[in-house]
């Protein structure tokens, strides 16, 4: 290896070192630490008790109906909200892409939900649907005394609506980026061949956008999976609306049961890992970052 290549390498590593160390310090180390905590009976409120308990905490979590209910809720929220976002995001992306006029207006207005603090968005939706302060129950076709947060399904619906509202713009922008990479000539050629708009969308747009769609889905799925803020503000987990993040927070922060809470944390991490792996399989070779290996 030449002297130059070696020094270039050294420089590169030095430049990357601070960021890598920071990322390891705040993610890798805590996860290892969480594994260590999760095999102990550690409750800060009972400082005299403690010690190694093996997989007891994991058994407690995995045999608890509550854990499976929260996993079910989280998956439900994720699947429903990401599906709706994909459809809405695609429509908004197409509108922005095929703008006759008002492109700037659409872009500006959809960026507002993106920029808004999630907690603020959650409060806006909560107050809108709350029977005491809200305006939704005063709308036509809505029962005046509908208690939106009093029932599991309706509470989850409002939570999902708030999530969709907040994150569709992000989805739309990612999809728009994919749309702009498609060669216009293809559409012209298809038009010549007599393909109508619907056919063009399914035959050209969708297949060519597969990578962009997968990237957008991956990011949003994992983002939706950590849903916390909206639930915390709107129901605090009552009516069986807890997500895995809320469950973890309750064990760790409300109960200070670091052992049990860490077991929940580790299990959430494993779930996220599984989802990511599933997507990587779906990507095939087009994983972001993989091209760098060559």
């Amino acid at each position: 290896m030449s002297e130059r290549a070696r020094s270039e390498r050294k420089l590169a590593w030095m430049l990357c070192a601070p960021a890598v160390i920071a990322m390891l310090l705040v993610t890798a180390y805590p996860i290892i630490y969480a594994v260590v905590l999760s095999v102990q009976a550690l409750d800060l409120r009972f400082p005299d008790e403690g010690g190694f308990v093996g997989i007891d905490n994991y058994v407690t979590v995995l045999t608890s109906p509550l854990w499976w209910q929260t996993v079910g809720n989280t998956v439900f929220i994720t699947v429903v909200s990401v599906s709706i976002e994909l459809v809405l995001g695609m429509i908004i992306a197409l509108i922005m892409h095929r703008a006759i006029f008002g492109r700037g207006l659409v872009r500006t207005s959809v960026l507002i939900p993106y920029g808004i603090v999630t907690v603020v968005a959650a409060f806006a939706w909560f107050y809108a649907f709350d029977p005491e302060t809200g305006f939704v129950n005063a709308l036509p076709f809505v029962a005046e005394d509908m208690a939106w947060f009093g029932d599991r399904f309706s509470a989850l619906s409002v939570i999902i609506a708030a999530e969709v509202w907040k994150t569709t713009p992000f989805m739309a922008l990612l999809l728009l980026a994919g749309l702009t990479t498609i060669d216009e000539g293809l559409y012209e050629a298809a038009k010549m061949d007599g393909a109508n708009a619907v056919q063009r969308f399914f035959r050209i747009t969708l297949p060519l956008m597969k990578p962009a769609i997968l990237v957008a889905l991956l990011f949003r799925t994992l983002d939706a999976f950590r849903v916390f803020d909206s639930i915390f503000v709107m129901t605090a987990g009552s009516q069986g609306t807890e997500s895995v993040s809320i469950l973890g927070y309750n064990q760790l922060i409300s109960r200070l049961n670091l052992g049990l809470g860490s077991a929940v944390s580790v299990l959430i991490f494993v779930l996220v890992l599984l989802i990511a792996l599933a997507f990587v399989k779906g990507f095939g070779t087009s994983v972001p970052g993989r091209e760098e290996e060559e």
């Binding site: 290549a5 973890g248 922060i253 944390s265 996220v272 990511a276």
Partner: peptide, 28 residues
């Protein structure tokens, strides 16, 4: 620059972008 480990850094960064923050809250 050209150096080995580029892919690992980008891959690692991607992994962190997907990391569930709640999993680090307790240890932190």
């Amino acid at each position: 620059l050209d150096f080995p480990g580029k892919g690992a850094i980008l891959g690692g960064a991607l992994a962190i972008a997907m990391f569930p923050p709640i999993s680090t809250v307790g240890p932190l």
